[in-house]
Amino acid sequence: MSAGEFVIEDLRAGIPGREILKGLSLTVRSGEVHAVMGPNGSGKSTLAHVLMGRPGYEVLGGTVTLDGVDLLALPTWQRARAGLFLAMQHPIEVPGVSLVESLTAARPVGGADDGVGERLHAEAARIGFDERFLDRPLNVDLSGGERKRNETLQLGVLRPKFAVLDEIDSGLDVDALADVGRRVQEATGEWGLGVLAITHFRRLLDVLHADVVHVLADGRVVATGGSELAETVDRTGYAAYT
């Protein structure tokens, strides 16, 4: 396996007693943006959870590698350290724990990641995240849109190799969507971030240019194409794929 690849191969996974992903394969290279679109129930969120190792999901078969590292063999925190980031659809409130505290803890002590504080302020400015939220406990009393900016902010500070964006467009107004989409797009050029953007709607792709679009239905990729595929789906709906 070569460097700069996030490879999902024949992934089968679900919750106990129910297989939801039924042999999903796709490959994202550094600097690329792939969109995964699909109707409700197609397995989009399960994919995000399984990739990051959320408790409650189980892998039944297949492999996921990041630059050749077998992610499925690693606990969640080591997947993150290997370079994977998940922007969650529903970021979780952690009372009493601030953004700067968590981001400082997110990297090994003595690593080449000094200046978290500075990066935090710079990233906040880039995506219009209000400075007064920086000292707040994580996601506590933040609106849906602020939480998504917050996820994007963390992505910018942590600089992962690959990011899975789980419906990052949900709960965002037009301005916030533009800020978030632009920041992610710029990251693909700045450090070669590879993106797997899971979304129900095409509107995210208006602000985040997708090199490849996959349509997910019943736990499998049923169609792959360029950005024109997203337009087709937008026009005709998912009915043709299910």
Binding site: R54, P55, W77, A80, R81, F85, V94, A105, A106, Q154
Partner: peptide
């Protein structure tokens, strides 16, 4: 869930 959220950041 809180633990998962922090662990997903590499903690």
């Amino acid at each position: 869930d809180q633990r998962y959220y922090l662990e997903s950041r590499g903690i």
